[in-house]
Amino acid sequence: MSKATTAALTTGSATAARLCVAALAATSAYLGFSAYDTANSAPRPAQPVTLQAREVPITSHTPAPAPGVIAVSAKAGAAGCDRTYLARSVVINPEPGTTVLYRWQLSRWSPRSKQWSAYLVDHSGFGGLKRTLTWEPRVADNPGWYRIELTVRSNGKTIKSDRFQVSC
């Protein structure tokens, strides 16, 4: 064998040996980290947790109004001329197997035309015998006289609340 061939084989063998040692080191490092991770993943002992809750009493409970009546109240927390109202009424379905469709309407009195006009409208429905309906219309920056109307499609009747004044 010539000196050049011997040098090439020696250099190649040394490189192969280094690569083999590097591969073994990487494999052992991976296995070491894997074993360490597995040891850390053991479940920790359970610690008791105490949950606390406090009871908040209902400060004002208003019973459901009678069927055919709309009860209106201002919701607390309104500031300035931005107010939300709670309208409630009870509707009885004459045919419990069908759906009752209804429409809420917030009407505003116009001093100029001397009549009520629609300000806000909402449609919905329900199935069943009887339901207490609620609606929360909001009046923002528009003082005046208002009333809430509820029209039930099954009987075509419209019931109206007493008028109320929004002032800033």
Rank of each mutant, 00 (worst) to 15 (best):
Y102Q: 05
V69H: 01
T84Y: 04
R112W: 08
I148W: 02
S110I: 08
K157D: 03
L86V: 04
P67C: 02
P96S: 11
L133Q: 06
L31R: 08
S154Y: 07
G97R: 12
D82I: 04
T98W: 05
A74G: 05
T98G: 07
A17P: 01
G80E: 09
A17F: 11
T59R: 04
C20K: 15
A22H: 11
Y102P: 02
A140L: 10
A53S: 14
D37L: 14
A64D: 09
A25G: 10
P45I: 14
R131V: 06
S89C: 12
L120N: 14
K114W: 11
R147D: 01
V21H: 10
S34Y: 06
A71F: 07
T98Y: 09
A71C: 07
R108M: 04
A23D: 03
Q52N: 12
R18E: 09
G32A: 04
R103Q: 12
C20S: 14
G144I: 00
S73K: 13
P48I: 03
E95R: 11
R153P: 00
W145V: 09
D122G: 13
T59E: 04
E55S: 15
A46M: 06
S113C: 10
L86D: 03
P63G: 05
W145P: 02
S110N: 14
C20G: 14
P67Q: 04
I92P: 00
A39P: 01
I148F: 06
T134R: 06
T11E: 15
P57L: 08
N155A: 08
P67T: 03
T6G: 02
A16K: 08
N142Q: 13
P43V: 11
D122K: 15
S113H: 08
V152T: 01
A23G: 06
H61E: 04
T59A: 09
E149A: 12
P143I: 00
S154I: 06
S107C: 14
Y102L: 08
R108L: 05
R103A: 14
Q105L: 13
A66G: 06
V56C: 11
R44K: 15
S28A: 05
T38G: 04
T84W: 07
Q105G: 04
M1G: 10
F33Q: 04
G12W: 12
L106Y: 05
L133E: 01
S154Q: 08
G128N: 02
Y119L: 01
S41F: 07
V21R: 12
E149N: 15
L150S: 00
T5A: 12
L24M: 09
K130M: 08
A74W: 05
Q115K: 12
N40S: 05
S117P: 01
T27D: 05
S107G: 08
K114Y: 11
G68Q: 04
S154H: 09
S110W: 06
G80A: 10
T15W: 15
L19H: 07
R131C: 05
N155Q: 04
L106G: 01
K114S: 15
D82N: 14
K114G: 02
A140Q: 15
L129W: 11
T99M: 10
K160S: 13
R153G: 02
S107Y: 01
S167D: 15
I58H: 03
I159E: 02
T134E: 14
S124C: 13
W104K: 05
A4I: 10
S117L: 11
Q105F: 03
A79Q: 14
V21L: 13
R103F: 02
K75R: 13
K3N: 12
C81M: 09
Y85D: 01
F164P: 02
T134P: 00
V72W: 00
